[in-house]
């Protein structure tokens, strides 16, 4: 159970020396599990890169990432996989469901070959029920609409009971109505599972529903706003 994720002086560059692109420029930030944090910014501002680094999908060029007291820059790829598998659930803009697997199989994919204290199948069914797809357990991704696919992806993100959910533009490919439903679902999940949510979006309206909004531009944080003061405050 990791309560907070801390980024210290994170810089991320792409490409070789002569055509170097700086995606993140010396970012330091502390994220808390109790918050629904949204990261906003125009495209190319570095928000997705930030999410990748938080979610250990990528390593920073410079700087360190701490999960509580653990410096994850020092741990090996296999342990990182383990960490992602147990503690982090991902939701992607393009859903990234495995096309050959049914809804329930997609949900179970992260737990494949892993022992759990609970019944995986029951859990998967519960989760699909939670996202409102109890009648689509055995449908293939191609038989589902965009919104339904994203719900499956959300259920997949939750299957391992993670501490954190990292969502990269989860509504980017969806219409407004569906988007709202997805966000509502995420809020509901937040309530039920008490996991931290990090939401990358360029939709300001959506971001307003978060507890904390981090605004980015050109690889730097230009604003960090806390919206709802009912929840426990965290100081950077």
């Amino acid at each position: 159970m990791y309560k907070q994720i801390q980024l210290n002086g994170i810089t991320k560059t792409y490409g070789k020396q002569n055509v170097k692109t700086v995606a993140l420029n010396d970012i330091s930030i502390r994220l808390h599990k109790n918050n629904l944090t949204s990261i906003v910014g125009s495209s190319g501002s570095g928000k997705s890169t930030l999410l990748s680094i938080v979610g250990t999908l990528e390593k920073p060029t410079k700087g360190t990432v701490y999960y509580d007291e653990k410096n994850i820059s020092e741990i090996r790829a296999n342990q990182l996989s383990e960490l992602r598998n147990i503690h982090i659930g991902f939701i992607f803009q393009q859903f990234h469901l495995l096309p050959a697997l049914t809804a329930i199989e997609n949900v179970l994919a992260p737990l494949f070959h892993r022992k759990t204290s609970y019944n995986k199948n029951t859990k998967a069914k519960e989760l699909l029920e939670l996202v409102g797809l109890s009648d689509k357990l055995h449908a293939l991704p191609s038989q589902l609409s965009g919104g339904q696919q994203q719900r499956v992806a959300i259920a997949r993100a939750l299957i391992a009971e993670p501490d954190w959910i990292l969502a990269d533009e989860p509504t980017g490919n969806l219409d407004t109505e569906t988007s709202e439903k997805i966000i509502a679902l995420l809020m509901e999940i937040k309530q039920q599972t008490a996991c931290g949510i990090l939401l990358v979006t360029h939709d300001i309206a959506l971001s307003r529903q978060a507890d904390r909004i981090i605004e980015m531009k050109d690889g730097q944080i230009i604003a960090d706003t806390r919206i709802n003061n009912n929840l426990v405050q965290t100081n950077d």
Binding site: G55, L57, A77, N78, S81, E82, L83, R84, N85, I86, I88, G89, F90, F92, H96, L98, P99, A109, P110, F112, H113, R156, A160
Partner: peptide, 16 residues
């Protein structure tokens, strides 16, 4: 490849 990337993202190990 993309499928494998997804599986890696959701925490599959290389060995798996």
């Amino acid at each position: 490849k993309k499928e494998f990337a997804v599986l890696k993202a959701v925490g599959w190990r290389n060995s798996k």
